[in-house]
Amino acid sequence: MKKLLRILFVVLVAKPIIVFWLGLTIRHRERLPTRGPAIIAANHNSHLDTVALLSLFPLEDVPNVRPVAAADYFMKPGFMRWFSLNVIGIIPVSRGGVVEGVDPLAECYAALERGEILLIFPEGSRGEPEKMAELKSGISFIAKRFPTVPVIPVFMRGLGKSMGKGTFIPIPFFVDVFIGRPFSWTGEKTSFMDRLREAFAHLQKKVPAQPLE
């Protein structure tokens, strides 16, 4: 049932919005993993980021893709919570590190062990539209625990312009998605985060800038 909901969401909502209403130019789609375990690290500007990333996968893989999302925002009781868990299929993570001995990332580890694909936004929140914020290091704990799992950096441009923080109707703009080369745990936290930062900086240069004032 949950699987069906997720596939229906991609067919009826994600694809029409992303492919028709916005319009997507994807480069290096072949670098997208078709099977897990894998970690996709993308820049974050809009709620549409998750929608766009989900729309990139073949339908049968969609239930296997798990966006990692902030529990304090998406787990507020009510429709949002139901929608996030059942339709988007998020893994809720509480921000702010270990509380009462429970590792907030435990569910992420379990998902990778099941062979699922994690979608992570290392910037943490959407922030200023079309600007990259400082990366949070949560992702490095996951990569360290699964040193052979590939990390695929993805840079998207235009979604923050279309539906940035505080707006809820997507305005049509073309969107660029550039998928980077996979890499994995470098053996140490600082160098891993540097590697990720470099990957984003590199992709950012490849994707043509969209003027926004």
């Binding site: 707006t167 073309f174 003027p211 004032e213």
Partner: peptide, 21 residues
């Protein structure tokens, strides 16, 4: 859409753009 992707618009214009569309 192509034109607006290439030309500069402001975030404040999004409401206006919806009318234009």
């Amino acid at each position: 859409k192509e034109f607006l992707t290439l030309a500069p618009t402001r975030r404040a214009d999004n409401k206006v753009l919806l009318w234009a569309y």
